[in-house]
Simulated scan of single mutants.
Amino acid sequence: MEIGDFVARKSYDKDVCFIIVEVDKESETAILKGFDVRLVADAPLSDLHKLTDEERKQFEAASHRVEDECLRLIKSRRELEHEKRSLRKEARFESSPDFFERPGRVLHLDGDGTYLNKCLTMYRELGIRAIGKHVPEAQMPKTVTALLEEHEPDIVIITGHDGVIRKGKNWSDIYNYRNSGHFVQTVRQARKYARNFDDLVIIAGACQSHFEALLDAGANFASSPQRIMIHALDPVFIAEKIAYTPINETVNVYDVVHSTYTGTDGLGGLESRGKYRLGLPKSIY
């Protein structure tokens, strides 16, 4: 087994595709990161099954199906919301229909550069203005304030990889998580920058993250209520709903979470105001 190999864990019935990121030959263990879930785990080398090309393709195909289905649901919802907004626009701008639209802006901090690029591609697909920064989880608390001051986003995403270190132990102990403590500190710094929950919407966490601690620190939305794995793009799907909900409306928490792959077991949050605005007039330039 080598760094970069695609593997699955035999003890978990090969349910998740991982990539080996570190190998300790002395202890014969490997550090793994999820291929399409935001999870970091360790496993004995003897528990790992190196995936064949065909098995890897099957995992990739399943991941694409998940993404395509989430995108289909979002576009379907967008069409319905567009019809509603059209009525709103007609009422508000019937004397001067030359308006323009401005969804919320996103600053996305990600501990995984590969996932970040994947998310940025999805933002472009969804028509969302987004700035992405690859920042290791441990460095996020020190860098988030300067990035917020530089980019002045409406929505900030704080994510990467996480995981429960010792299952069956105290799940309320923040030290029993690989990166939840870093995410909590980052959320606190971001909330100091913008204390009003509607001025800056904070989405935080990764797989199995300490949901309650993230909300207590000041996040609007967080993972993971049932300490399950979340999909790499789940934070993007939450940001999309907030970015395209009008500022005079409160985002329905259930609708936000329903637009993700993992649902309420993987993500939850608080009522928050949308970030979508209409403007007038549209510039000819």
Rank of each mutant, 00 (worst) to 15 (best):
I3R: 11
G4D: 12
F6N: 12
F6D: 07
K10T: 07
D13L: 13
V23L: 12
K25Q: 10
K25A: 11
E26M: 07
T29A: 04
K33I: 13
R38S: 00
R38N: 00
A43L: 03
P44R: 03
S46A: 14
D47E: 07
H49M: 09
K50S: 13
T52I: 06
D53S: 13
E54I: 14
E55Y: 11
Q58V: 11
F59I: 12
E60F: 07
R65T: 11
V66C: 00
E69S: 13
L71P: 01
R72A: 15
R72H: 14
R77Y: 11
R77H: 10
R77C: 10
S86H: 01
E90T: 04
E94M: 07
S95N: 07
S95C: 00
S96N: 11
P97H: 06
F100L: 09
E101N: 09
R102Q: 15
P103H: 09
L107P: 05
L109E: 06
D112E: 09
G113D: 12
Y115N: 10
L120Q: 10
T121L: 09
L126C: 04
L126V: 06
G127N: 07
G127F: 04
A130E: 01
I131N: 07
V135E: 02
P136Q: 02
E137K: 01
A138M: 04
M140E: 02
K142I: 00
T145D: 12
L148D: 05
E149H: 11
V156S: 03
V164E: 03
R166V: 13
R166P: 00
W171C: 10
S172N: 15
D173V: 03
D173L: 04
I174R: 01
N176I: 09
R178Y: 10
F183N: 03
V187H: 00
R188A: 13
A194L: 08
N196M: 08
F211G: 06
F211Y: 15
F211D: 04
A217I: 10
N220R: 02
N220W: 01
F221K: 08
F221Y: 14
S224Y: 08
R227D: 07
R227M: 12
H231R: 06
D234V: 02
P235D: 02
I238R: 01
A239L: 06
E240Q: 10
A243W: 04
Y244N: 13
V253D: 06
Y254E: 15
V257A: 06
H258F: 14
S259H: 08
G263T: 05
L267V: 11
G268N: 09
G268W: 09
R273S: 12
R277T: 15
L278N: 14
S283T: 15
I284M: 14
